[in-house]
């Protein structure tokens, strides 16, 4: 293994991480809600009095790259894989995160911050599966 120094962005990534932790933490403090993107997406299909708030949070998330783009030019966040892989990956991410009741934000950020063993197991497993998948797809096939 070699380190890819050219693409290494420790400070920007750390700052981004701090903002992610800050927004999730402030939502928990103010609203008593755990910020999980997959759960909020699924919650769009639940008609309750939190529906508008969930939609607004997701709207802010969708609008964020446009706001950042006003200040820093953004490179296009486009996957470099074929259509079949895009669709299959989307289905797996949507179905898997709901089956596990959480994704990178709900289990990875919020759950680990709450020292939840359940979230630690989930995070360990999805990270391991992702590392293994990249190794198989990019190096073995």
């Amino acid at each position: 293994m070699t380190i890819d120094w050219q693409n290494f962005t420790p400070w920007a990534s750390l700052l981004g991480g701090v903002l992610i932790g800050l927004s999730a933490g402030v939502l928990a403090l103010r609203s008593g809600r755990v910020l999980g993107v997959s759960g909020f997406v699924s919650g769009l299909f639940d008609r309750d009095d939190e529906w508008t708030s969930r939609l607004m949070l997701l709207a802010g998330l969708i609008a964020a790259p446009l706001v950042v783009g006003l200040v820093v030019p953004q490179s296009a966040p486009i996957p470099d894989v074929g259509w079949t892989t895009v669709i299959l990956g989307g289905l797996l991410v949507g179905f898997g995160t709901r089956m596990a009741s959480g994704c990178t934000s709900g289990h990875g950020v919020c759950g680990l911050s709450r020292l939840s063993l359940r979230s630690a197991v989930a995070t360990g497993l999805f990270m391991a599966a992702a590392f293994a998948t990249v190794f198989i797809v990019r190096h073995l096939i």
């Binding site: 993107v37 997959s38 997406v41 997701l58 998330l61 969708i62 964020a64 790259p65 966040p77 996957p79 894989v81 892989t85 895009v86 299959l88 990956g89 989307g90 289905l91 797996l92 991410v93 949507g94 179905f95 898997g96 995160t97 709901r98 089956m99 596990a100 009741s101 994704c103 990178t104 934000s105 289990h107 359940r118 197991v121 989930a122 995070t123 497993l125 999805f126 990270m127 391991a128 599966a129 992702a130 590392f131 293994a132 998948t133 990249v134 797809v137």
Partner: peptide
Amino acid sequence: LATGSVLFGVGWGLVGYCPGPALA
């Protein structure tokens, strides 16, 4: 929890999007 997490990890590794970035 285990099966869902593994399915999610495979999808994430295939494309590089988890739910937040996919919406962004």
